[in-house]
Nucleic acid binder design. Structure first.
Lengths: 158, 158
DNA sequence: CCACTTTCGTTCGCATTTCAACTTCTTAGG
DNA sequence: CCTAAGAAGTTGAAATGCGAACGAAAGTGG
């Protein structure tokens, strides 16, 4: 009885596309991180600031923030401690659920966002958005959407 | 005198595409890493094995490997030490440049590759390649190519 | 009201990554 | 030849990251 199925290796085109994708991701991460360094922020810091600044009251529950930023609770906890020490955010108790905590953006954190955001956007443009046509960007988006959906549905499965 | 140029924020389409791209990268990395775990390998391990197995003599200079895998020398050095302890690779002196070292794939390492590669390819297919049409994949590739070129040219600049 | 299970967030132990020396060897200039 | 500059790798300590175990607080079913 045949249990082994012949491996469907990637075709040249597939392999090439795949490798480019991986390569772009790594180099892009590297560059964006690099461009944020002068401001003393990492992408992780920045991402958290963005999420917080986009809520009405500039606060988010730890769990939600962990989910939104795709990191473990443990990692987020450490991360928030660091950002708290840096004065960017502070923790605040949640009245309705006394197990819970809010991460709240401080005025300093908001100020940092206002200062850094333009540079980050410029960085994203310089290394990504402005390098391709709107049509290509759209094609990229369309291609990635089903993948994003699939991956979201996979999160935290066996 | 005006030194500030008004920030060109991302349009909705740009922002959406950008965020999807970032999100896909993070989730994809997570999934691939996850799928490799049962074999006791990380993506980093695997990537190194791939590079080595693709050279004729299954060996590469540390520096070249560091460049190829986009990591610092220090990181690679630690990484290779771990892989050496796991029996996947070994270090070998370089005769032409006595500062230099080769990382050489062991038979064990090669065997591991043969065993793991099919699963990894399946993983790449399941979470990426097979989720979109060849046309979309091609569009993706075409869109990413200029970005990859730009980023390569930026590596290690001021 | 009382167990039982689940959720929230932190902490601990351990692995990985970074950063800044440091050693050894090569190369270039005089 | 000799010295200074640079390149190849390593090292150790500090920062960061992850999974498991944990305590506290909610929710749930009898």
């Amino acid at each position: 009885m045949e249990t082994e199925t012949a491996t469907r290796w990637l075709t040249d085109e597939e392999q090439c596309a795949w490798r480019t994708h991986v390569e772009v991701n790594r180099m892009l991460t590297y560059q964006l991180e690099r461009d944020l360094q002068p401001f003393g922020l990492t992408m992780n810091d920045y991402d958290i600031l963005v999420h917080l600044s986009e809520t009405d009251d500039h606060r988010m529950r730890m769990s939600d923030l962990a989910t939104a930023t795709l990191q473990s609770k443990s990692r987020l906890s450490h991360q928030i401690t660091r950002m708290e020490n840096a004065g960017l955010v502070r923790r605040e108790n949640c009245e309705s659920d006394r197990r819970g905590l809010y991460t709240v953006l401080t005025e300093d954190g908001m100020e940092t966002m206002r200062k850094v955001a333009p540079h980050h956007v410029a960085s994203v443009r310089r290394h990504f958005v402005d390098l391709i046509s709107p049509e290509e960007l759209d094609a990229l988006h369309k291609a990635l959407t089903p993948i994003a959906e699939h991956l979201r549905s996979q999160r935290g499965k066996p």
